[in-house]
Design a protein around this nucleic acid. Structure first.
Lengths: 277, 277
DNA sequence: CGGGATCGATACCCGTGCGGTATCGCTGCC
DNA sequence: GGCAGCGATACCGCACGGGTATCGATCCCG
């Protein structure tokens, strides 16, 4: 399955083999074998191009989930062995720079619990928390709807907040008490920056590139961009930036999420604490 | 992992090896190897008994999930290949004898949809639907809260109903317009029957044994048992049985559930149809 | 239209590792 | 104390995964 995922992602046997650290012929054979075992054509190959069949697309999705589950099993077992010897706590995945106030309150409140264990923070990029939770690198995560998806996790809603537009201080709009989405999309000279995707490349389109929040805020302060963010971000803004509520932007809900079969007392305690905030 | 799950379930290397169709020594080695690879003790063995360690218990849970995911990947890929050639439809898992009216309406309504495919029914015993959904034998299922758990699935609530007690016709209580739980638990001579668990054995305790609904209703008609069930069961009762609403019994919610990553158009159509009922 | 480049498939060889049998060592019990 | 039950160890053989060399098809370019 690892082999198949590599080929399905590269759509190229040679590169996939290289990525897997094996030669190309055994890879070809392995895939053929898999196809025979499943009784289904997975890849359409010509000598020029490789494409996924319907069944191949299904297997790609399912195989990723299965591989994640296997990895999670390994990692969680290793961690359980460490926890048993008292050498590790619980890993909380959270988006870098988001919900910092909520996070601080949660950590404080949890630390005050009688049976609290160490909470290790795992700061993630956009959308990374889901994978961390799925493959066992994290035990529990803070997600933000509607940006993250919670499919397959148990969740508890923590808070819902409106969004604001972040502008350079002194921008004409900062005088307003509120704005609409239409006021800020396509602002002349203040486009939304582009973020790199999971593969590290930037999407096409206008707007400057930003890799993290420091760069983002720098861009805004320089009058080269604007940004829409949950209002809780105001607590950590530099004072050369200003915010204005955007009335019709979708609200952001922060949820705490954990894998559905989690039996960890630490996770349960963290969730209980969070729900009481 | 398959090996480990077998040993963890049997707590006996010999029996586990037999179940796996291999000899005992390679099994011992495989488990030792797994322990070394994970760097964690999984089993506590003396020459008389085998017990799970903390880490072993975690791995048992995680490994089952991972194995289910792998099986699901295989099955769903096979099915996708069949569907592509138009030889199969979608598999709906449902509790035998439950929600029959709702099910009939759903199947009728879905069949009338323009892009409907064949719906194969998979009638399950108590609690079996979850596993069917998890390991890919079913694409979508009807579950009944609070009896089934929906952890890890996407769901849509379909209907909520009260429960009734099923009694032999002519029983004194049948004259009442409603009863309380206290009226029907420990009814003299009318205990709740015992159902076999997943392993086919009956729990200890009083009450007759019933293997299916035919036996159950027979027992009730004979005046040897009573039963609490969702009120929709009335449609399929024999006329020598009577029902009385139980005011303080938990309500039963029928939900339609599907694996969170499902991209099947057929499943989506079925869910959409169900939600409109 | 032919030659080269690209890429997956095939042929064949080799070594590792998994599974098998035989046996040991420990432990509890009659 | 002897025996039975059970997991661990020792050792062997073969099947399978991975390697190299090469083929065959397809596209591109002059």
């Amino acid at each position: 399955m690892r082999y198949f995922v590599a080929v399905a992602e590269e759509l190229h046997f040679g590169r996939a083999a290289q990525r897997l650290g094996i030669a190309q012929p055994p890879l070809s054979r392995a895939i053929r074998q898999l196809e025979r075992r499943l009784g289904a054509g997975l890849l359409e190959r010509t000598s020029r191009a490789v494409t996924l069949t319907e069944a191949g697309a299904v297997l790609l999705r399912e195989a990723r989930a299965a591989l994640d589950a296997v990895e999670a099993a390994e990692r969680r077992t290793r961690r359980a062995a460490l926890v048993a010897t008292g050498r590790a706590g619980v890993v909380l995945a959270t988006k870098a720079g988001a919900s910092s106030e909520l996070l601080a309150k949660l950590l404080d409140a949890y630390a005050a619990e009688p049976d609290a264990v160490t909470v290790d923070l795992l700061l993630c990029g956009i959308g990374e928390q889901e994978r961390m939770l799925r493959d066992g690198r994290a035990d529990v995560a803070l997600l933000h709807l509607p940006f993250d998806t919670t499919a397959g996790f148990d969740i508890e809603e923590l808070c819902t907040e409106r969004q604001v537009v972040v502008l350079p201080a002194g921008h004409p709009l900062t005088g307003r008490t509120h704005v609409q989405m239409a006021d800020v999309t396509e602002l002349p000279g203040l486009p939304m920056p582009r973020w790199p995707g999971r593969d590290g490349t930037y999407p096409d389109g206008p707007g400057p590139q930003a890799r993290d929040h420091v760069q983002l805020f720098q861009l805004i302060a320089l009058g080269r961009a604007c940004w829409i963010a949950p209002e809780s971000c105001r607590a950590q803004l530099r004072d050369d930036l200003a915010t204005v509520p955007v009335l019709d932007a979708p609200t952001v809900t922060t949820v705490i999420a954990w894998p559905p079969h989690s039996r960890s007392r630490a996770v349960a305690g963290l969730v209980r604490t969070a729900a009481r905030l």
